[in-house]
Amino acid sequence: MNTKVTIAGVELKNPVMTASGTFGSGMEYEEFVDINRLGAVVTKGVSAVPWPGNETPRVAETYGGMLNAIGLQNPGIDLFIERDIPFLREFDTKIIVNVAGHTIPEYVAVVEKLSDQPVDLLEINVSCPNVKEGGIAFGQDPRALDEITREIKRHAKQPVIMKLSPNVTSIALMARTAEMAGADAISLINTITGMQIDIRSRKFALANKTGGLSGPAIKPIAVRMVYQAAQAVSIPVIGMGGIANADDAIEFLLAGATGVAVGMMNFHNPYATTEVIEGLEEYMEQNGVEDVAELIGGVKE
């Protein structure tokens, strides 16, 4: 039975990874899961300099999910290189670093600092809804997405995954734009912009007023978008959005995802990633699936 998948020339032992921002750099979950089991760890977004993030409250629970507006708090690329990458190198897994910025030069600065680092793939965050400049601005306009993708491809030493926003009119157009601009893979979906108001205090639940919705509540939207994106491009698609268990992960694979990521559900079940891997293997065994490739895009018309 083969669970290996290849994304932009990088072979993962299985398609299961962590969604950026929900797993730190793995340190916080090391007590719960064997990181060696994971196909890849996708780190929290990292920027050229340390970012303090937004005011609190930064999260609010919603029906079947949550809103977050962390605002990409991160320690900056220098400390990240000194501390987080060496930590992850201790494990037999692939390292995907999520890159954040306000401007193209800021993204490029991070990408360049990572060029000589033992990192397998870069994931470019052009879809964070919670920062004032940059982030989602690059992911909602095809021309801006085209420009940043080309610029990053010019500087990146590792293959580039563009992480797309669901807050767009046509995900197929954005996926195609990223591919045409040279992206090696795309990942989706980032969170969906939402809002919650506390009727007792009559205040916004989040200090930032809006936040990104994630969790099982968004899964059908994510599956639909992964399907549409996978139909539109020939580069690999990494699917995520509300994955809680192996059944959910398999659904994304069938929709056309080559890789899948567990995000918010790590908070509900810290063992979720490894349970997805075990469940996938069990499904393959029970259904006579020899190679996970048989599942990818395997939905019947």
Binding site: G24, E28, F32, K44, P75, P270
Partner: peptide, 22 residues
């Protein structure tokens, strides 16, 4: 998350925190 990964529950500190670097 409750385990230090999501960075939701932060408080402001007088000095730069060793982990967050802010």
């Amino acid at each position: 998350c409750g385990v230090g990964a999501c960075l939701a529950c932060v408080c402001k500190t007088r000095n730069v925190d060793a982990h967050s670097n802010v």
